[in-house]
Amino acid sequence: MATPKWAAPVSLTLVCGFLGLLLVAQLQTQPSARPRVRNEEWDYVVAGLIESNGRLRDEVAALEEQLAALQEAEGGGGAVLQTLVDEVNRLRIVNGLVEISGPGVEVMVTGTLSVVDLHDLINEVRNAGAEGLAVSGHRIVAWSAISTDGQNILIDGRPVSPPYSLQAIGAPDTLEAALTRPGGLVSLLAKAHPEISITVTRREKITLPVCTQPLQFAYARPVQADTKRP
């Protein structure tokens, strides 16, 4: 069988063309195989990211809610704290446990006063709305003991001697008017003790010291009446 003269080159050409195709295909496959697989993976990655970002957003929202609640609680607690601080500070004034200053009157008495006279003076300025008072530098509170050892007036056991000063913080006009009104305490005392002199002076600012005799409860105890509270 005779092979045609053109058969060998043609078949060779075909084979070589096919080889070329394979070669290119091979070259192409090498770099393009990875992106194809990665595209599918990325599908998965993107879906995962979307889901996990969603979870993160949920958590951010939940924490923001918690934070808002805490901030509200803290604000509320802060308001409660402030109320308590204000009330404690107010009661410290009442109880003479803090130095205070403000307008008021000063009563100077030269000569000897009796314990009762002093009590009456204190009662008078309290009645006129004194918010704090001191006698010769001793802060007077509810339980202050004003007595006598027969010679001197004792305030919480400490002797004070004339001239006496009574300083009261409050509305100066009201305090002065209460003391100096006709038939008022100052005129009564002046009548009872012609030898003493009493002057009442309004002051723009008086400073009262802290009470040095804080009350210690040895017999009185708070009544346990907290049943009202839930």
């Binding site: 009442v94 130095e99 709305g129």
Partner: peptide
């Protein structure tokens, strides 16, 4: 307790 004039300090 009416406190209108006294201030701490």
């Amino acid at each position: 307790f009416f406190i209108r004039h006294a201030r701490p300090g």
